[in-house]
Design a protein around this nucleic acid. Structure first.
Lengths: 219, 219
DNA sequence: ACTAATATCAGGTTATTCCTGATAAGCCTC
DNA sequence: GAGGCTTATCAGGAATAACCTGATATTAGT
């Protein structure tokens, strides 16, 4: 009989071990290798040519997205299923566009994962029910996915965002940049629109995450 | 014989299922319940009074750090082991200070996790070898300092600080906690006084530094 | 030349913060 | 067990900031 051979790629060893246990327990499924990062994943796929690659997007050395891209280009027989902490539209759509055949959030159970495996080996696409409403209609999303959010801001925006995250008030920022407080307000509103962030704390977290400010900036 | 009863708290069902499989396979260990978020974790601990709680720090509804704090205060028999994607000094130290008995990164294998379980039930602290230098290093004073400050806040203060840093408005916080907006204002003013922080961005940075909130998605 | 994006600003309305109080419950102490 | 300390709760009114709408000048792109 044809056994479905699987490769598991995830940074976390406990997770791989547990997942492997669950998948191996299922008749017809067999985990033939594990990978702890992107390069290992590519390596393992080329060596074993498995039917399915299950991978987390967040991987070291080579991003999960890049792994999908390469596998879908050079190992067309191997289907990729994303099993990730990310469950937002941007990642799901981006993964599928890059060649993934399935997407399962880690919130789901093994049952769903097994279904996904069997679905993709039939050549179909498996999308977790939770993502049903995600549509891949417009091109806007693909650009959104590939762009670094910081790049979507103007220099002025970044300048002001930085000052906000450092705790300066609107008036202080105005004085520092020799512009009107009203202008600062407009800039703030605009950059919030672009980042789709609705509150100042969200801006601060974003600024820290993107390296615009660091945490020991005390006031 | 005395079986070690364990509760597993993690957002991701696949992960819980896999982990449970691995732990249950070990003689003497038994996973008696799972929890998908912080409140469920507290609930499960109070119902089962297990020897060990294994939890991820990133949890919905109630932060992992807060779960540790409550468990260590109200369920002294239960030892908490953090099993997290986070492996930075801030989170490790913060978890231990809040009452965790062990910290294992998800990069580690089950063997290490089992060792951690057996170590903490003996009343000792288990720290993953990777973190060995953290406890003794005096380098990151700002981290330690902010943790001390965090302990000077009341429970209510921390609760409100967390919500502020997550981007909730004063009114939203008031509604969430069933108190008046005026009271929330007072709490905010008081905790700002104690922390000697004068602006909201400062609060957000402090909250992140001390592990009260994380940088990931909003909510 | 026309369009889009950027940077600048204002008026007026709404919402929030800041300041100055106040009360009641719980706890430690002497 | 009376008095002080901390905590949690709340209000009125003044000061401030945010929000919405709309406008203009400059540059960059096609």
């Amino acid at each position: 009989m044809n056994e479905i051979r699987i490769i598991l790629a995830d940074t976390h060893r406990v997770f791989r071990q547990g997942c492997r246990e669950l998948l191996d327990a299922e008749p017809g499924l067999s985990v033939v290798a594990e990978a702890a990062d992107g390069l290992e994943a590519i390596d393992a796929v080329q060596r074993h040519l498995p039917e399915v690659l299950i991978l987390e997007l967040m991987l070291h050395s080579l991003d999960g997205m890049e792994v999908i891209r390469r596998v879908s280009r050079f190992n067309v027989e191997t289907r990729s299923i994303v099993l990730s902490t990310y469950s937002d539209e941007v990642h799901v759509i981006s993964a599928l566009r890059n060649g993934a055949s399935g997407y399962v959030p880690k919130e789901a159970g093994v049952e769903e994962l097994k279904t996904a495996v069997r679905t993709v080996v039939r050549g179909e696409v498996f999308l977790s029910p939770a993502f049903a409403e995600y549509t891949f209609s417009d091109g806007h999303l693909s650009t959104l996915a590939s762009l670094d959010l910081l790049e979507r801001l103007t220099q002025r925006h970044r300048e002001i965002l930085k000052l906000i995250a450092e705790g300066r008030t609107t008036n202080e920022i105005a004085q520092a940049l020799f512009i009107s407080a009203k202008t600062v307000e407009t800039h703030r509103a605009n950059l919030m629109l672009r980042l789709e962030i609705r509150d100042v704390p969200g801006l601060v977290r974003f600024a820290i995450r993107s390296g615009l400010v660091n945490l020991d900036h005390d006031g």
